[in-house]
Design a protein around this nucleic acid. Sequence first.
DNA 1: TCCGTTCTTGACTGTTCGTTCCAGAAAGGG
DNA 2: CCCTTTCTGGAACGAACAGTCAAGAACGGA
Lengths: 191, 191
Amino acid sequence: MGRQKEFDREEALHKAMEVFWTRGYGASSIQDLVKHMSINRQSLYDTFGDKHALYLQALDRYREVESHKIIELLERPGSVKRNLRQLFETAIEKALSERRGCFMGNAMSELAGRCKDTAARTCGNMGAAHEAFYRALLRGKKEGELKRIRDARAVAHFLYSSLQGLVLTGKATQDRKTLKDIVTVTLSVID
Amino acid sequence: MGRQKEFDREEALHKAMEVFWTRGYGASSIQDLVKHMSINRQSLYDTFGDKHALYLQALDRYREVESHKIIELLERPGSVKRNLRQLFETAIEKALSERRGCFMGNAMSELAGRCKDTAARTCGNMGAAHEAFYRALLRGKKEGELKRIRDARAVAHFLYSSLQGLVLTGKATQDRKTLKDIVTVTLSVID
DNA sequence: TCCGTTCTTGACTGTTCGTTCCAGAAAGGG
DNA sequence: CCCTTTCTGGAACGAACAGTCAAGAACGGA
């Protein structure tokens, strides 16, 4: 059946995701990608199609990896408030250490307005995150921790939007207090 | 003193701002800019310097025009709550009709992490908006409309971040209800 | 009127972009 | 062993990129 691939497809895709995540679509050249993926130019085209197709696959991979992290965190047993607080505080720490934001948020900003494929993926990812928030809120209500919440779907939308706003703000300022203020007020709506 | 310019500098800069706002920095070519600004290539370089310098001037112009709109709206006499509601509802309408988001938000996402000049401008703009929110909240407190607010600076940071999150979310989804949900919950913190 | 300055124009630079082609090396199946 | 398939590396493609140059047109001042 011919020669085997010398590189691991998933590993290469992961590297591509990191390049696109860090630099965005337009600012990532094939040169950059080839270098960081440690594969040959031709192998890239043979395996992933063209640049745009690779980008979409990287978005899909991000969703698999990062979204599942969020879902997993929100589904941890115990206090829903504590889980939410931890999610937002982790976001602050990442905003202060890395500066690349959220790959989905970056994709929304750069391409979702012009590219349907990207819009579909960012929208789908938002839907998945929304469901995770929603389920967590429902559980919090059922367990009596979140008595004040009326429209859980609305609050879930709000939380996702707030998280994106927080991460975006973290690109402009490195001031920890500003980011903590945002989280404090955000979480006050589920207090 | 030689020949006069055949174009209006401010008008050309305004056009450049619209191109950068709509397409972002990387995806705007000098070709695009020249075309939409209706000036010659050389005039662009003579008048504004290179592409990057033009971008920064476009950011400055955006701040002058758009930030002042926000400040003006928030300083209107009468109910602070009403003013804030109108600001957020206008943001929804713009998100649904145009798809270009907020130029400052776009700049944060695309460049603030890599370019100090851009970071300084987005940060400065955030500071100005923060002050506008803060003054509005203080007035609301003084006039007895916003009794529940304790840390007005924190709420001001929150409102700016939420606005950015809302606008970004509007790039992924065109669903009006989702956006209205976000605004409803956001404004519940100043209720 | 003529000079000097500045603006306009379009051709042109060298570079980088995404993508493809090709020749050859490597490996599995018969 | 040979055949087929696949991967590799480098060269090459045309297009698009940001930025520059030189020549001339238009205007203000003397």
